[in-house]
């Protein structure tokens, strides 16, 4: 291993999501890992970081024209990007890793632009080959594996959830939080309001869940059976875009929605259109429930039931609960 420094973005710093633990695990394989935060990490967060071998958390002290930048604005991609760029300069880091999301892509692009760094979006693996950072990507709806090397000194990479199994370090450490000054450029963009959707479902987040149950037009608007099976499995619930645009469910899976790559994806009443497949075909195991034996989703699945989802899903949920207890 080289003496490379790897920075991992921790935003928010009030919780460590599974995707960040996966990132920390990947990062340890590349060099010395430090975290970058825009607010003070909580005690629980520090303990988790310590378990993953993080000795230093760099906490930004944000200022613009002499005034402190606080509140929601801290999460704007331009502000986070300025922070990452400043942290790279401070630590002379070689690699910056972020968990993939739409906001993270914007942040990563701005940071890479400022640093003159190479950029990889949606990596499924990151490793070092002959001194260079090499990222693996699944493209074309999971049909191709590609690898690319970053040719610049600094690499900025967003990494998909479920790309690694989170693994604590061999020995835990006690992280130290160190402040550093970040000058944020005046922005012509005004944030008028920002609202984070409160999730009271108790289910794992869709983009990070190990098991996803998704419902489509075939639910005819009743997501009850989908939710029932998801809860029996401890899974996240998603939808097809058509079901989401009907207003039946919020978050949808696919190329323009959420990209998922769970251990198990179960699609019920979903035909498996190319746009949908693009967001789930990298799943390890694909299960389909569909009343039409000719549904295209059967071409990419491992297991399928041809039948009515309102019959099949509740029965599966009941059976799982029974065999578990």
């Amino acid at each position: 291993m080289t003496n490379r420094t790897v920075l991992v973005l921790l935003d928010p710093a009030t919780e460590v999501r599974t995707s960040v633990l996966e990132l920390l695990t990947i990062a340890r394989g590349l060099g010395r890992v430090e975290a970058v935060a825009l607010e003070a990490p909580t005690v629980e967060v520090l303990a988790q970081l310590g378990a993953y071998g993080i000795e230093t958390v760099h906490q930004a002290e944000l200022a613009r024209d002499g005034a402190c930048v606080s509140g929601d604005e801290r999460h704007l991609p331009a502000v986070v990007a300025a922070t990452l760029a400043a942290a790279v300069r401070l630590t002379d880091a070689d690699v910056v890793l972020l968990p993939t999301s739409f906001a993270a892509k914007e942040t990563a692009a701005l940071a890479a632009h400022e640093l003159g760094a190479g950029l990889v979006i949606d990596a499924a693996a990151v490793r070092e080959v002959d001194g260079r950072i090499v990222a693996g990507k699944r493209v074309f709806a999971g049909a191709w594996d590609t690898e690319c090397a970053v040719t610049t000194d600094v690499a900025v990479v967003t990494v998909r959830a479920n790309s690694a199994v989170a693994q604590p370090a061999e020995a835990a450490v006690e992280p130290v939080t160190e402040g550093f000054a970040v000058e944020v450029a005046p922005s012509p963009v005004t944030l008028l309001s920002r609202e984070v959707k409160a999730d009271t479902s108790g289910r794992p987040p869709l983009d990070q869940a190990a098991v996803v149950v998704a419902g489509g037009r075939g639910t005819d608007g009743d997501f009850g059976p989908v939710e029932d099976l998801a809860d029996a499995l401890g899974a996240a619930v998603g939808a097809s875009r058509d079901a989401a645009f009907e207003g039946w469910w919020d978050a949808y899976v696919g190329q323009t929605g959420v990209t998922v790559a769970p251990r198990v994806y179960i699609g019920a009443g979903i035909s498996g259109a190319p746009h949908h497949r693009g967001g789930m075909q990298a799943s390890q195991v694909i299960v389909a429930v569909n009343s039409d034996p000719e549904a295209p989703i059967f071409e990419i699945c491992d297991f399928a039931v041809v039948g009515q989802l309102a019959d099949v899903l509740p029965q599966a949920a009941a059976e799982i609960r029974k065999r578990r207890s």
Binding site: W144, D145, T146, E147, C148, F298, C301, A304, V305
Partner: peptide, 23 residues
Amino acid sequence: GARTETLSAAPRPERAEPEIVTD
């Protein structure tokens, strides 16, 4: 001018035949 260089691109192995059950 590119800051990344593609090293390889390979098709994924095909999935095995699915197990299909009619309800």
